Amino acid sequence: MITMEDIIRDGHPTLRKVAAEVAMPPSDVDKQILSSLLEYVINSQNSEVAAKYGLRPGIGLAAPQINVSKRMIAVHITDENGALYSYALFNPKIVSHSVEKSYLQSGEGCLSVDEPFPGYVHRHARVTIKGVNLEGEEVKLRLKGLTAICFQHEIDHLNGIMFYDYIDKHDPFKTIEGAIAIER
């Protein structure tokens, strides 16, 4: 089981590397790592389990965050309509996206970043993601809102990009005209 001690912190060189593709079919070790990422995110949202093991709540986790530089992410999130998106994906990629942007009004956070980075992180309002699940099946997801933001945040980890890289250094709360503000 992954704990907070397993999650590397901002400044660790692995967080700035471009992660390697996972060979298909994935090895048992890679399947176990991906499965444990999803287990962490699910457990971190259960207040009793999180308290017992000292887990910081999260909605997504990428393999580079546990110092494994491979293209694997896990997301466990409920969208604005109450639909659950619980996915563990190998080699996820954004295959299309909207021109329209969105951002979280409360800003973004990260399990690898302990200090707050106030400001707006502008992302694509809608994305289509493709990846391979633990059963080896290709998954294609059309996402919007908080769910789209979460997947983009995790895929950024695979490319060595941190959420605060997008925050305007001179005007952190600058909005892009027409961008959708999302409340969390």
Rank of each mutant, 00 (worst) to 15 (best):
T3V: 09
T3M: 07
G11D: 06
H12Q: 12
L15F: 10
K17L: 13
V18T: 15
A19V: 02
V22H: 03
A23W: 05
M24N: 11
S27I: 04
L37A: 01
L37H: 00
V41Q: 05
N46K: 14
E48S: 14
A51F: 02
G58D: 05
G58T: 15
G60K: 02
L61D: 01
P64A: 09
P64K: 11
N67Q: 01
K70V: 03
K70S: 10
R71P: 00
A74F: 02
A74Y: 00
H76W: 06
I77H: 03
T78Q: 11
N81K: 15
S86N: 14
Y87D: 03
A88C: 07
A88D: 07
L89V: 13
N91A: 10
N91R: 14
P92T: 12
K93I: 12
S98R: 08
V99P: 00
V99Q: 14
E100N: 14
Q105T: 15
Q105A: 13
C110F: 01
F117W: 10
F117H: 15
G119S: 08
Y120V: 00
H122V: 08
R123H: 05
A125Q: 01
T128C: 12
I129S: 05
I129C: 00
K130Y: 00
K130P: 00
E135A: 15
E138R: 10
R142P: 03
T147G: 00
A148M: 07
I149Q: 00
E154W: 01
D156H: 09
H157D: 06
N159S: 15
M162I: 14
D165E: 12
F173H: 15
F173S: 12
R184F: 13
R184V: 14
